[in-house]
Design a binder for these strands. Structure first.
Lengths: 231, 231
DNA sequence: CCAAAAGTGTTGAGCTTACACCCATGT
DNA sequence: ACATGGGTGTAAGCTCAACACTTTTGG
């Protein structure tokens, strides 16, 4: 039974936008492309879909290859399919974006792949339509982080509220009121006080929190309002 | 230059979820599949991507083929790519969802395709993973319609506020307060009073409004809060 | 004149914002 | 002691939800 035989088959790639946060700025993990076309240019990490591999599995494979990490936050963004987006041959790209703790990656594999963490604000030109992909991913991140508690994915296991605030300020490129932010976050009931205090701080040490995983899972799809409403 | 030659090519389909609203219920335009496998079963409208055709163009082609319509609201949902989702051969499906005025379709082409408007609440079993697609599309519609003014896409050019309210009640499967709803909608400044009144109503005739296209375009991506906040 | 649906007004509760003040720490 | 950053409290203003009342129309 081969009823589809006359239809065209297409090359299908997976590209991954990897967000990280260094405490000050939102960053992307980008690579220098190692093959033609556009060899040497900046690009998203990607690869082709294997014949017997689900898309999500492919994305995880690619992410693991570059970062050494498993079980990270990954979400399918959208599929890019303009006919001429790749000059060699028509290639669909199923784009995923991932949020990781920037200190958690495997330095070796990052080096092997010629990869670098680059601040979003200083992003170089990227190959093909990768800039559009990043643009869309940033929009999605902003959209989603305003309503759902995904910011935590970019921070270490334990973090302080001021750290979280800096993250939100980086995502939305604005300043927030310290007192109101703290109240808003704590009122979600998603944070657990670990009892420990931040050692880094030069002044008063902030309380370290961690996610209440159970509440996080069960309440993830409720709407929160982390950002000030600016109509 | 053929650097990708050793990679696998895949069949790529486009499937479309078509929402409509009859004044009471949210409906889907579904078809009875005309070929094997699963011939005779209910299915989403779909087709294969042509070799020289952008994905969005393909979606529009497929939507036009079934409804006779152009320039309708279409949004890419997500790509489904489980290895075994199609028993004949591995096939990716790029899924789009569309919102149309249910009275605007071409009855002939609908008939030719064996298609039917079916209430979401009485949805039959669908082939492959099409039910998951519908589920996800409904979630996306609910999500988006709570924050952006897309409901209008499901109504005629001119409509009354009570009609719009019924639509929202159908989307979210709940009852809303007439007075608060009306105020909330009017306060967006997106509606223009046409001066005309609804003829259908058996009692007091409601004012007919139409979208202020300019404000709609420019304010589309602002956040609204059409739905009551229920944390 | 009555029923049913549409339109307008009002009020109180609760949330958000904007601010002031106090505490802890290293130099 | 003081500068810096973290934590808590509070009052004013605004928004939203919950309600009552009036208007229009057909029968």
């Amino acid at each position: 039974m081969n009823s589809y035989s006359h239809s065209t088959r297409l090359l299908v790639a997976i590209d991954c936008i990897i967000f990280g946060f260094d405490g000050e700025e939102l960053k992307l993990l980008l690579i220098k492309r190692r093959f033609e076309p556009e060899k040497g240019k900046w690009s998203l990490m990607g690869g082709f879909v294997n014949e017997k591999e689900d898309l999500e599995v492919g994305a995880e494979r690619i992410l693991h290859e570059l970062t050494g990490l498993h079980d990270i936050y990954v979400e399918q963004l959208q599929t890019f399919g303009k006919v001429n987006r790749d000059p060699v041959e028509r290639t669909l790209s199923v784009v995923f974006f991932a949020l990781i703790n920037i200190h958690d990656h495997n330095a070796e594999s990052v080096e092997v792949h010629n990869a670098c963490w680059i601040s979003l604000k200083q992003m170089p030109a990227l190959i093909f339509d990768h800039e559009k992909m990043v643009q869309m991913a940033l929009e999605r991140l902003r959209y989603k982080a305003a309503l759902h508690p995904i910011g935590f994915e970019l921070l270490p296991e334990q973090f302080t509220i001021p750290q979280l605030q800096k993250l939100y300020e980086a995502i939305y490129d604005l300043k927030l009121d310290r007192r109101n932010f703290s109240r808003k976050i704590l009122s979600t009931g998603l944070l657990l006080d670990t009892g420990e205090k931040n050692a880094n701080s030069a002044t008063k040490k902030a309380v370290m929190y961690r996610l209440d995983k159970e509440r996080y899972e069960s309440k993830f799809n409720h709407f929160w309002y982390f950002m000030p409403v600016t109509t």
